[in-house]
Amino acid sequence: MKVAIVGAGAVGCLLAARLTRTPAGVTLIARARAAEAISHDGITMVTPLGRVSRVPVRVTDDALSAGTQDAVFLCVKAHALGGALDTLSSLMGPETAVVPMINGIPWWYPLGQPEPLESYRLKAVDPDGTLWRSIPSDRLVGAVTWVSVEADGVGRIRHVDDQRFVFGDPLGRRTAAVESVVELFGLAGFQARGSLDIRADIWTRLWGSLAFNPLSALTGATPGALCVDPGTRAVARTLMAEARAVAERLGITFTADIEARIAAAAGVGDFRTSMLQDMEAGKRLEVEAIVRSVAELGALVGVPTPTVETVAALVDMKARHRGSGTAGMAA
């Protein structure tokens, strides 16, 4: 099995380091500077138990040189997917599976859903429909990532907590592509499973991301601290309640309650969320996929989301005025 991982961020490096130890032929596709550093030094990974390992990986900045792949894992932020399309096209063959490892609501969410979703295109995550037109829907494998990992420089990561991944066909079918990906991740030592309702898994994961990513970016606090403080815990609870109302209107049934989900987030402790990491690094935040997509879906189905919209506006403002107080949002 030939596998390409597009993106050398924290999740991309984690997958490259772990999947390289399987029988699959793994290639990490990275920007030139990162590819050079990783080619020379490999990926340095600190495990949840504190062990440090250095893993040599095959890496290139030339996707064409990697050739046609059996599966491509898109490990870039949702707002960067459009910029990865040329790379993806260089890796695609007639049966290549495409696995977007993104946070939040994916652009393909309306696929095969009843109205009003079926004919709808999510403007928050695919404003001009480029992703919908460019990535064949029959190649998609939906993915939900339950892993806490931090970048510590180019090719250096700290795997903080959890190793769970969920994969599923967007149309709810049992497919060979999903089974192959689940098997591959199992061989890498991850806890991976297939799902016949990947959208329900997306909402369960999004519950925590929606609450704690923007609140951490606004306050600089970790989920552990946000869950302990009565004020921020209450805001998180309200955000999750609004999201639950939207999801339920779309036919999603939650198997856990809000307090249990908050308790799970508290258990992560001092982990810096991806949005907090991006805020501190001056990078663009995933507000559209994680926060604004929920408000957009709420408007579509007639469910008010005032707290979600307020938090999105506050995070946008903070991102625009971070640092010197006048700097714009970084790309």
Results as ranks from 00 to 15, higher is better:
residue 279 M to Y: 09
residue 282 G to V: 11
residue 277 Q to S: 13
residue 273 T to D: 00
residue 289 A to G: 07
residue 285 L to R: 00
residue 261 R to T: 13
residue 295 A to Y: 02
residue 262 I to G: 10
residue 295 A to M: 07
residue 266 A to H: 09
residue 259 E to V: 06
residue 257 D to C: 14
residue 279 M to E: 10
residue 266 A to R: 14
residue 261 R to D: 11
residue 272 R to S: 12
residue 276 L to Y: 00
residue 279 M to A: 10
residue 281 A to Y: 05
residue 293 S to E: 04
residue 293 S to P: 06
residue 277 Q to G: 10
residue 287 V to G: 01
residue 286 E to G: 06
residue 273 T to F: 01
residue 263 A to T: 13
residue 274 S to C: 08
residue 292 R to G: 03
residue 265 A to K: 07
residue 257 D to E: 14
residue 271 F to H: 15
residue 296 E to W: 01
residue 287 V to I: 13
residue 274 S to W: 01
residue 259 E to K: 12
residue 292 R to C: 11
residue 263 A to F: 06
residue 281 A to Q: 11
residue 283 K to H: 13
residue 280 E to M: 14
residue 288 E to R: 08
residue 289 A to Y: 00
residue 291 V to K: 07
residue 289 A to H: 02
residue 296 E to L: 00
residue 292 R to D: 15
residue 295 A to R: 02
residue 287 V to K: 01
residue 285 L to G: 01
residue 279 M to I: 07
residue 265 A to V: 12
residue 288 E to V: 08
residue 296 E to Q: 04
residue 284 R to N: 08
residue 264 A to D: 10
residue 286 E to R: 07
residue 269 G to Q: 08
residue 279 M to F: 09
residue 258 I to R: 07
residue 283 K to Y: 11
residue 285 L to E: 02
residue 284 R to V: 02
residue 267 G to A: 14
residue 287 V to M: 00
residue 260 A to P: 09
residue 261 R to H: 07
residue 274 S to V: 02
residue 277 Q to N: 11
residue 281 A to P: 07
residue 286 E to P: 04
residue 284 R to T: 04
residue 279 M to H: 10
residue 291 V to M: 12
residue 296 E to Y: 00
residue 283 K to G: 10
residue 263 A to S: 15
residue 271 F to A: 11
residue 290 I to R: 03
residue 293 S to R: 01
residue 281 A to E: 10
residue 270 D to T: 15
residue 288 E to Y: 08
residue 282 G to H: 15
residue 280 E to C: 14
residue 272 R to E: 13
residue 282 G to M: 12
residue 261 R to S: 12
residue 260 A to L: 14
residue 269 G to H: 06
residue 280 E to T: 12
residue 280 E to K: 11
residue 268 V to G: 10
residue 268 V to S: 10
